[in-house]
């Protein structure tokens, strides 16, 4: 078996997600190549070469792959896919954007958000907001898979794969990059943080999210939010945790002013320890919380911060 992993990039650097995808790949078994595509991605390629288990890093460094737009990325994968039995990417917004194009052009299905590998052709994936786990077997000649990173522990970085340039250049006149507004934050990234503290509609407004800052500073936590908090404009979309936002599984998840709708639970219920702070003692979030504290968040948060 021979497997190609599409590396995830974050502002041109290798994103943490890739080490989890390589772990999923090791569970399948076989030779592992990593494709790093973008513009100015030499450093990312070198970082990918250090991931344990990788034999070869293939680098497509060209302006046409800048920002990893779907059309050129899909075309590049189609060019490179021959000879591989599996192509994997993380279930990031990039992986989700690009991989289905490869699957369609190869006339195979895609398995999304895989959380466990049973064998080289049989995988587990959540459906219905994680309220059921399906086991699916693919008889397609090429398996195209996106991986939910919380399902696999990251591989180490003591590898030394060879790095090789890929000179495939594709045309793209259909789509172009206009601009990006990326959230600037010194905090850990939501997907990889050991502690996450999230605020919901109960926070009342965006200003009040500052109440979470001091706690997050002390705990080295990432800050998340419910859909209601994002929809109301309290915080930006990239903070949404849930079925249709980010999936997190930290050691500690603290839900503040969040009721616990199934769509929110889908994004955090695999956390090791869950704390809920809510003034409604019947809020469904308490059914999944290891520790629940009933009360007014505006009183609890300052006290919590000062006593940490």
């Amino acid at each position: 078996m021979s497997i190609l992993v599409l590396a995830d990039l974050h502002e041109g650097q290798l994103a943490g997600a890739t080490a989890h995808v390589v772990a999923a790949t090791q569970a399948i078994g076989g030779d592992i190549d990593v494709l790093v595509a973008g513009e100015g991605v030499q450093a990312a390629a070198e970082a990918a070469a250090k991931l344990d288990g990788v034999s070869k890093v293939r680098v497509a460094d060209n302006p046409v792959y800048a920002h990893q737009l779907a059309e050129p990325m899909g075309a590049l994968l189609v060019e490179l896919a021959d000879g591989y039995t599996h192509v994997l990417a993380s279930a990031s917004t990039t992986g989700k954007n690009v991989l289905p194009r490869l699957a369609a052009l190869k006339d195979v299905s895609q398995l999304s958000d895989v959380i466990a590998v049973d064998s080289a052709d049989t995988f587990k994936r959540p459906i219905y907001a994680g309220n059921a786990i399906s086991t699916v077997k693919s008889d397609d000649a090429l398996k195209v898979i996106t991986v939910r990173t919380t399902g696999f522990d990251a591989v180490g970085t003591s590898g030394s794969a060879t790095v090789e340039a890929v000179d495939v250049v594709v045309e793209n006149s259909q789509s172009s990059f206009v601009k990006e507004e990326l959230a600037a934050s010194d905090r850990p990234e939501l997907g990889g943080a050991k502690v996450v503290i999230s605020g919901g509609r109960g926070m009342g407004n965006g200003e009040n999210f500052k109440l979470l800052d001091g706690i997050a500073d002390k705990l080295g936590a990432a800050i998340g939010a419910s859909r209601a908090a994002v929809d109301a404009g309290f915080v930006p979309n990239d903070m949404q945790v849930g079925q249709t936002g980010k999936i997190v599984a930290p050691d500690l998840y603290i839900a503040v002013g969040i009721s616990g709708a199934i769509q929110h639970l889908a994004g955090m219920k695999d956390s090791k320890v869950i704390v809920a702070i809510n003034k409604d003692d019947e809020a469904p979030i308490f059914q999944v919380a290891d520790y629940g504290l009933v009360g007014d968040l505006f009183e609890i948060l300052p006290e919590f911060e000062s006593k940490l």
């Binding site: 195979v108 299905s109 398995l111 049989t122 959540p126 459906i127 994680g130 309220n131 059921a132 786990i133 399906s134 086991t135 699916v136 077997k137 693919s138 008889d139 397609d140 219920k269 869950i274 003692d281 308490f286 059914q287 999944v288 919380a289 290891d290 520790y291 629940g292 504290l293 009933v294």
Partner: peptide
């Protein structure tokens, strides 16, 4: 060419303490 082998309930989380 993808077949559904089985569907299971996820591990249930028990509510803890207040």
């Amino acid at each position: 060419r993808v077949s559904l082998v089985k569907v299971e309930s996820p591990a249930e989380r028990k509510g803890g303490v207040k």
